[in-house]
Simulated scan of single mutants.
Amino acid sequence: MRRPHPVLRRPARITAALLAMAALAACGGEQPTARTEATAPTTRFTENGVTVTLSVSDWHPPKATLTAVFTPEEGFHLYSTDLPATGIEGVGRPTAVNVTGVLAAEGRLTAAAPVQSISLPGVDAPVPVYPDGPVTTTLPVRATGNGNATVLVGYASCSSREGCTIPVADRPVQLRITDDGPAFDTP
């Protein structure tokens, strides 16, 4: 006599949950691994060819991590966070995330992408950029109390074939800090 498959012996709701997680994974979805990730406040905007997704995670009052994922149009790259504010010989603008109000930066903005140098026509010095595609940056932050904060986002994107987009400088995104944690204001 054959034994039933182990999955068939589990209670129906456990099997249903496992099947739902498997279906989510097969579709490329991600499963939250911690409560802070599942409930992280998130907002998004698109300007000048780049979609920026902001989220606040690892909320352990008064500290948190502000994450910004920059997704330029296909074939475009972003400039490095280390690029000078005015670019190299006037070309490019740094990828930047700053905070004001009741949030203060607790360190430097870091990117999870390697920096590469490119040569551009008419520019003598190499220009530091990230590879084409999305770039995830993180900024450790500390709340100094409850109230309003502003996240200021800056970037520029370029393509070797199509040229550059107009830079975005200090694009404000509003965030409220309360006893319940951070929340982005909806536009």
Score class of each variant (00 low, 15 high):
F184M: 02
R9F: 01
P167R: 03
T95E: 04
P172G: 07
E73W: 03
A149P: 12
D132Q: 11
A16L: 14
S55R: 12
R142Y: 01
T71S: 10
G107N: 10
T138Q: 07
A143M: 01
H60P: 08
R161H: 13
R13T: 15
V151R: 04
G181H: 08
R108I: 06
H5W: 09
A96G: 01
G122E: 03
A104H: 05
A169G: 11
R142Q: 14
T39L: 11
T39K: 04
A111E: 08
Y155A: 04
P182T: 12
L19A: 14
V135G: 02
P11N: 12
A96M: 00
E89G: 08
T178S: 15
A104E: 15
G101D: 05
P84Q: 03
L24F: 00
H60V: 12
M21D: 14
A112T: 05
C158R: 07
L139Q: 13
G28Y: 00
L18F: 08
L8F: 11
T138F: 00
I166A: 08
L175P: 06
G28A: 00
H5S: 13
P167S: 07
P140W: 06
V7N: 04
P114G: 12
T42W: 03
T65M: 08
G133Q: 04
R44T: 15
V123D: 00
R142F: 00
I118W: 05
S55I: 01
P72V: 09
G122A: 03
S159N: 08
C27V: 03
D124M: 05
N148H: 11
G107R: 10
G133K: 02
H77Q: 13
R176K: 14
T110S: 14
T36I: 00
G107K: 13
P61N: 01
A22I: 09
P126R: 07
V50C: 12
P114C: 02
R93Y: 04
G163N: 03
C164S: 13
I88L: 03
L103G: 07
G163S: 02
T110E: 15
A156F: 02
A96S: 09
N146A: 12
D82Y: 06
E162C: 01
T178A: 14
V153L: 10
S55C: 06
P128R: 09
A111G: 04
M21A: 13
V127R: 01
R108D: 14
S55T: 04
L54C: 10
N148F: 08
R13W: 15
I14T: 14
P134R: 13
I177Q: 12
A112Y: 02
V153C: 10
H77A: 15
P167H: 06
G101Q: 01
S117N: 14
V173Y: 03
A156L: 07
P94K: 03
V56C: 08
P72N: 09
P140Q: 05
T81N: 03
E73L: 12
P61M: 00
P62N: 02
L66T: 06
A16V: 05
I14G: 08
L78F: 04
A20P: 06
